[in-house]
Measured scan of single mutants.
Amino acid sequence: MTEYKLVVVGAGGVGKSALTIQLIQNHFVDEYDPTIEDSYRKQVVIDGETCLLDILDTAGQEEYSAMRDQYMRTGEGFLCVFAINNTKSFEDIHHYREQIKRVKDSEDVPMVLVGNKCDLPSRTVDTKQAQDLARSYGIPFIETSAKTRQGVDDAFYTLVREIRKHKEKMSKDGKKKKKKSKTKCVIM
């Protein structure tokens, strides 16, 4: 069974824990209790493949930012979460993405942009803004509501699919490099 290491990042209060708990335990946590770091595991079937999701729910508070490099190193894919009623959390996505790329030393890291709290009427981040940002990053965008469960499975499952595509691409690139290195030079 394939294991996928997913990391949920975003500013404090955007609903990272609520999304994760909704996926794992099928219930909505409405009281806000700032996370330092929590880890969850769940076995699911995605596109006919049974897999184990190892999900790291991270601290959004700035005082825990020193811990970010460590979990970013171990993560295979990242859910970059903002709240649709919090423009600052949307603007912060850029910083999370840049930090992930720096730590992973790669421009090509599996990510999904997630606009959470889409059940709320007080939207300050337009869907088109988020779609445009995701398009500019070359990553999928999904709106979710941890409260109603809308888009929750889709967000995590899409990230797994992005990781699969990335692994497939990397193995193809690896095979191309191996083929090239088999060419021999004969000096007579």
Score class of each variant (00 low, 15 high):
126 D>I: 10
126 D>W: 06
126 D>R: 04
126 D>H: 10
127 T>C: 12
127 T>F: 13
128 K>Y: 10
128 K>A: 13
128 K>P: 10
128 K>F: 10
128 K>C: 12
129 Q>S: 09
129 Q>H: 13
130 A>W: 14
130 A>G: 10
130 A>N: 08
132 D>H: 05
132 D>P: 01
132 D>T: 07
132 D>G: 07
133 L>P: 02
134 A>V: 03
134 A>D: 06
134 A>E: 00
134 A>H: 01
135 R>T: 09
135 R>S: 06
136 S>Y: 04
136 S>A: 06
136 S>P: 00
137 Y>I: 11
137 Y>E: 10
137 Y>L: 14
137 Y>K: 07
137 Y>W: 14
137 Y>P: 01
138 G>Y: 01
140 P>I: 02
141 F>H: 03
141 F>D: 00
142 I>A: 01
142 I>H: 02
142 I>V: 01
145 S>N: 13
145 S>F: 05
145 S>A: 01
145 S>Y: 06
146 A>F: 13
146 A>C: 10
149 R>N: 10
149 R>I: 10
150 Q>L: 04
151 G>L: 04
151 G>E: 09
152 V>T: 08
152 V>I: 13
152 V>E: 04
152 V>A: 08
153 D>V: 14
153 D>G: 12
153 D>A: 13
154 D>K: 11
154 D>A: 10
155 A>S: 04
155 A>M: 12
156 F>E: 01
156 F>W: 07
157 Y>F: 11
157 Y>K: 08
157 Y>C: 13
158 T>R: 07
158 T>C: 09
158 T>D: 14
158 T>I: 00
159 L>H: 00
159 L>E: 01
160 V>D: 02
160 V>G: 05
160 V>K: 10
160 V>I: 14
162 E>W: 02
164 R>Q: 09
164 R>D: 11
164 R>N: 12
164 R>P: 00
165 K>D: 06
165 K>M: 09
166 H>P: 03
166 H>T: 06
166 H>L: 10
167 K>Y: 04
167 K>A: 08
168 E>L: 09
168 E>G: 02
169 K>I: 13
169 K>V: 15
170 M>D: 07
172 K>P: 06
172 K>R: 15
172 K>Y: 06
173 D>I: 00
173 D>W: 00
173 D>A: 03
173 D>G: 05
174 G>R: 03
174 G>V: 04
175 K>S: 08
175 K>C: 05
176 K>G: 12
176 K>Y: 07
176 K>D: 07
177 K>D: 15
177 K>V: 12
177 K>G: 14
177 K>P: 10
178 K>L: 06
178 K>F: 05
178 K>I: 11
178 K>T: 12
178 K>V: 11
178 K>W: 08
182 K>G: 12
182 K>I: 02
183 T>W: 01
183 T>R: 06
184 K>G: 14
185 C>H: 15
185 C>G: 15
185 C>P: 15
186 V>N: 15
186 V>M: 02
187 I>W: 10
187 I>S: 15
188 M>T: 14
188 M>G: 15
188 M>R: 13
188 M>A: 15
